[in-house]
């Protein structure tokens, strides 16, 4: 795949290394000359020195028809214009950018950027999720936080111990995808009986996550 990386410092370097291993065709554009020299001495890939928000720089970089463009500059508006130029003027198939202001994630998506990543947003969401529920529970959000994958260990006091899964009144939009019992992995069905010490991995939509936890732990909602 032809991948263009615009701007960014540590993130750019890390990406170059990991993408190079997968033998993608990389093009790097960076507005700082000494950093370009630094990159050029480390990697055998095209490094273009210039402001990636300018059309002529993107022309020089020959990004026409690239598969992916990743905009990593520190300025949200710059990243937006880079993505839009790549899409509209150079027909890049997929554009990805990072933003510093979490509020821009939705806006940029609405305006046509395919993937928008905000480190602040992701970390804040993780903190929020891990602080609203108990410590022993781990959860992971996918699809921008609409769906969560959760892990919970069943203890003796929980009301679900020694019950068949089909008898527990779980809501509709969730599924227990696997049960880890000691070192074995079980794919449960309605007949599976939960035991103390089991670790459940379940997928649910984010809205009912707390409800599912309160059913498993017997706690109040």
């Amino acid at each position: 795949m032809k991948i263009v990386i615009a701007g960014g410092r540590n993130k750019a370097k890390f990406l170059i290394e990991s993408l190079q291993k997968k033998s993608h065709h990389l093009i790097v554009i960076h507005p700082d000359q000494s950093y370009c020299d630094n990159l050029a001495s480390d990697y055998q890939i095209p490094i273009i020195y210039g402001e990636p928000t300018k059309k002529y720089v993107l022309e020089d970089a020959d990004i026409q028809g690239a598969d992916v463009l990743i905009a990593l500059t520190a300025n949200d508006a710059d990243n937006f214009i880079i993505c839009q130029m790549a899409q509209k003027l150079f027909f890049v198939k997929k554009v990805v950018c990072v933003v510093t202001n979490p509020g821009n994630v939705e806006i940029f998506k609405n305006l046509g950027v395919h993937t928008v990543i905000s480190a602040t947003y992701m970390v804040a969401k993780l903190i929020e999720q891990s602080s609203t529920i108990e410590n022993l529970i781990q959860s992971l959000s996918i699809e921008d936080g609409k769906v969560t994958i959760n892990e919970i260990t069943v203890t003796e006091q929980y009301p679900v111990v020694n019950q068949k899964i089909s008898q527990i009144p779980f809501p509709k939009d969730m599924i227990i995808s696997c049960v880890i019992r000691q070192t074995c992995l079980l794919i449960p069905n309605g007949e599976t009986i939960l035991k103390s010490g089991d670790t459940l991995i379940f997928v649910s939509i984010a809205k009912i996550q707390d409800e599912v936890f309160s059913i498993i732990t017997g706690g109040k909602k």
Binding site: N75, A77, F80, I81, Q84, L111
Partner: peptide, 10 residues
């Protein structure tokens, strides 16, 4: 320009 471009589209 990039800020103007973003604001106007928003």
């Amino acid at each position: 320009d990039s800020i103007n471009c973003l604001i106007s589209q928003m």
